[in-house]
């Protein structure tokens, strides 16, 4: 199947890249267009006559977009830190220690990761409301565990299994305790896997919508995805501002993807492919 690529292939490839990137590029153009060019006869033009950064400015001056960004950052970071910590212990145990019931535990973790969010929303909402935790960071971080923890355990387990277990045996022979083996031998080797998993969990938490939509309804506590969707009014949709906000959120993600693409891909595919 290995055939070197000809010019036709590259043309096809460019076309493919263009099609995939097109919505993103078009939104970038929309964000830079003044209202006069966004609608009406110039709506379909690729070239902007009077490019402007007004939309980007308005997103921050007329809307609490900076607050949304901060909220999303806090919630996604704390969710990542806490679920990675707890998941690391669990994954270490599953991958490196011998005890019974591992398959069942992994099965439960996988099953929980497939739970539809909507099936957990009503009790979680009622609970958060009765505890006064709606419109708080904690009120989002707790339910985010439902997807973050299984995702983290599953990915970390796969990574940790790849670390040769002989190292653990060797440490044991040398008289290291389980705790010492874990902290001195294992974790340094596991850091790349932990890091990759952290990226995946962070993106998942950053992108979450249903819990954020229902639990944090106050303007000051909204996260980015909810905030952007709520830009639209009853009768008008401020496309320029929505586009600018979308670009602001997407650019860091794109940068992150460009830097960590190898890690992300290995993280995404490691569960599905046996090596």
């Amino acid at each position: 199947m290995q055939k070197s690529a000809g010019p036709l292939f590259y043309i096809g490839l460019l076309l493919f890249v263009f099609v995939v990137m097109f919505p993103f590029l078009w939104i970038l153009l929309a964000a830079l267009k003044p209202p006069g060019e966004l609608f009406g006869e110039r709506a379909f033009h690729f070239i902007i006559q009077n490019p402007t950064l007004d939309n980007f400015i308005r997103v921050f001056t007329e809307r609490p977009f900076a607050t949304y960004l901060w909220n999303s950052t806090v919630v996604a970071t704390l969710t990542t830190l806490y679920s990675i910590t707890i998941a690391s212990f669990a994954a270490y145990a599953i991958a490196w220690l011998s005890f019974r019931g591992k398959t069942i535990i992994l099965g439960v973790v996988l099953a929980v990761s497939m739970f539809p969010q909507i099936a957990t929303i009503s009790p979680i909402f009622m609970f958060m409301q009765s505890m006064g935790l709606t419109n708080s960071y904690l009120g989002l971080i707790i339910p985010y565990t439902t997807f973050a923890l299984p995702l983290a355990i599953w990915n970390l387990t796969i990574y940790f299994r790849k670390i040769p277990s002989d190292l653990g045996e060797a440490a044991k022979v040398d008289g290291a305790s389980v705790w010492q083996t874990m902290t001195k031998v294992f974790f340094p080797l596991a850091m790349p896997g932990v890091f990759t998993t952290a990226i995946l969990v962070f993106i998942a938490a950053w992108n979450e919508f249903l819990f954020a939509l229902t639990l944090n309804t106050q303007e000051a506590m909204k996260t980015v995805p909810v905030g952007i969707v709520m830009f639209q009014g009853m009768y008008t949709i401020p496309w320029g501002e929505i586009s600018a906000a979308s670009i602001i959120v997407t650019v860091p993600l794109v940068v992150m993807v460009l830097i960590f693409q190898r890690r992300i891909i290995s993280g995404l595919t490691s569960g599905a492919v046996k090596e």
Binding site: A5, L13, V17, V20, M21, A30, I237, S246, V254
Partner: peptide, 29 residues
Amino acid sequence: PFRGRGLVRATVLIPWAIPTVISAMMWKF
């Protein structure tokens, strides 16, 4: 094997990384 694999890989990852609601808003536009 071809040149620019990294670019293609990054390209296909971008739609995946964007929050779903934001891609939905883009498409709505």
